[in-house]
């Protein structure tokens, strides 16, 4: 009798996990870079290809690093939110235009507004790989020491901003 209960026990354990699994997103891969220094790079800027941007310039500040592209549908969802955030002027937002063309990126900004303090251009996606980007949009919160404190996978939503990003930025700024 007792041994005959083993299959049922195994099944119930599996059911427990499956139930939990229903509320997990199998595609969201947490970044191992959280808590590590943001990878260095030097990329041309969108507004002026002659000049470059490097994360070193942001040392001493808490900033958001937003990876976007004009071909990315979900970027359209987060764009107005970023525009609003930048209007508040509470945290600098650096954009990285990922695997995109300049004219299309410029057109996108002309239409939706430009929430970015600076935009770096990652035309071949190499810096994206360094940052472990696997789907745009992705947003990193980087602290004063240049460490990645948080990574938002997928569009920045109001909820994510209110519950995670803004409190985190405030805490980091106070440090």
């Amino acid at each position: 009798m007792k041994r005959a209960l083993i299959p049922l026990a195994i099944f119930l354990i599996v059911v427990g996990f499956l139930f939990k699994g229903l509320f997990l997103n199998p595609r969201e891969v947490p970044s191992p870079l959280v808590g590590k220094p943001a990878p260095q790079f030097s990329l041309p800027r969108l507004d002026n290809p002659e000049t470059t941007f490097s994360p070193k310039e942001m040392l001493g500040k808490v900033w958001l690093f937003n990876v976007w592209a004009s071909w990315c549908g979900a970027c359209r969802d987060e764009h107005p939110i970023l525009v609003e955030l930048s209007k508040a002027g509470f945290v600098p937002v650096i954009g990285m235009d990922y695997k995109d063309t300049r004219p299309e990126a410029q057109q996108w900004l002309d239409q939706g507004g430009n929430p970015y303090n600076i935009i770096a251009v990652d035309a071949d996606g190499r810096v994206g790989i360094d940052y472990g980007v696997y789907g745009v949009p992705e947003t990193y919160v980087i602290d004063k020491a240049g460490m990645i404190a948080y990574k938002q996978i997928g569009p920045v939503t109001y909820d994510a901003l209110r519950d995670k990003i803004i409190p985190l930025v405030k805490r980091l700024q106070a440090q």
Binding site: V29, S31, L33, I129, G132
Partner: peptide
């Protein structure tokens, strides 16, 4: 690659 994307 693991240091950037994790064990996934």
């Amino acid at each position: 690659l693991v240091s950037r994307y994790g064990d996934f």
